[in-house]
């Protein structure tokens, strides 16, 4: 079995900051907006190097989304930065009308997604954002797994014409994807070959899925782990090919199981090739305060939970 290791842990939001800084040097049309969270979004470098292309909006996310839509008229490629909660739920109608329905080329970049925001608690831990964004016609939805992938995705979405929701997080997590790996929107990455079960994971759960696959290997279970960074459009081919071999699947995400990756996968399977599925995700609840690790354990979003779900799904084959 192919195994993955890492030499350092970094936060995915820093990958966004690094990608944005690179775009600042390479694409003169890229502009950035922030609603009073420059430090949290790691936008400092872009701002330092391109002050005229940065717009500090203040604590006014609705205005920020409208400004971004307007900036596209004249050829700019706006990247908005704030927490996932304030990037989606707070401004849903602004995104819906001024960006998605209007077909504007805005990149909505959302940090501190999910439970791993930690101690600030449920007011800030949005677990519904993937669902909100994937329901909007024409919206591309991406949830990256580590520093390198987040940096690559940030650079890639500037080349994509149309609105994008890019979701990443706060805590330092293992950096295990190659720094030179090209990011292809909508193209899932098979991390391990397996024959007994497919594990499709997104965001912070990708590393947990790899950890789970090691434990499963020791128990004689061969897991195929797929990193599905793009939730919409979803890579149907990759899912169906894998499941046609393994005949069962576990999906894993730091999001409500209602409206998230798992439901998108279930739709693909239900339409083309039904197979037993188990879901890793929060189950229709709000989060709470705690350390990221405590929260991921309490809500069943770690490698131990993935192993348990795999054992369940195998019994249903």
């Amino acid at each position: 079995m192919k195994t993955y290791t890492y030499t350092e842990k970094k936060d995915t939001r820093s990958g966004f900051g690094a990608g944005l800084a690179e775009l600042g040097r390479t694409n003169p049309n890229v502009v950035a907006l922030c609603a009073d969270l420059i430090g949290s979004l790691k936008m400092d470098k872009f701002i330092e190097e391109n002050p005229e292309r940065f717009f500090q909006v203040g604590i006014a996310e609705a205005n920020m989304m409208g400004l971004a839509a307007g900036l596209t008229i004249g050829g700019k490629i706006p990247f908005t930065g704030t927490f996932a909660n304030f990037s989606t739920g707070r401004v849903y109608d602004q995104i819906r009308q001024s960006i998605a329905y209007s077909g504007k080329n805005v990149k909505i970049c959302a940090s501190h997604a999910g439970l791993t925001l930690g101690e600030d608690g449920a007011t800030h831990q949005i677990l519904e954002d993937i669902g909100l964004m994937k329901m909007l016609p024409g919206m591309t939805v991406i949830n990256t797994c580590d520093f390198n992938q987040t940096k690559a995705a940030t650079i890639a979405i500037a080349e994509h014409q149309g609105p994008v929701y890019l979701r990443f997080g706060r805590p330092a997590v293992p950096v295990f994807t190659p720094s030179d790996q090209k990011f292809e929107i909508g193209k899932a990455i098979k991390l391990t070959e397996g024959k007994d079960v497919t594990i499709v994971a997104t965001g912070h759960l990708v590393w947990e899925a790899l950890e789970a696959s090691k434990v499963l290997f020791e128990r004689g279970i061969s897991a195929e782990v797929i990193n599905i960074h793009t939730i919409k459009p979803i890579d149907e081919k990759a899912i169906l090919e894998s499941v046609s071999k393994t005949r069962c699947i576990v999906t894993a995400e730091e999001h409500n199981i209602i409206g998230g990756l798992g439901e998108s996968v279930a739709r693909v399977l239900g339409t083309h090739n039904p197979a037993p599925q188990e879901f890793i995700g929060t189950n229709d609840v709000f989060g709470e305060s705690g350390t990221p690790a405590q929260l991921m354990e309490k809500y069943g979003l770690n490698s131990i939970s993935i192993v348990a779900k795999v054992e369940s799904v195998l019994k249903r084959k």
């Binding site: 400004l67 839509a69 307007g70 004249g74 209007s102």
Partner: peptide, 27 residues
């Protein structure tokens, strides 16, 4: 038509964004 409108209160932000794009473009 350059933007959808109907859900109220959004047009001023959009117009301001377009105005700032004009400034960046030296238009």
């Amino acid at each position: 038509v350059r933007i959808a409108s109907g859900s109220l209160g959004q047009g001023m932000s959009v117009a301001l964004g377009a105005a700032q794009a004009k400034k960046l473009n030296k238009d």
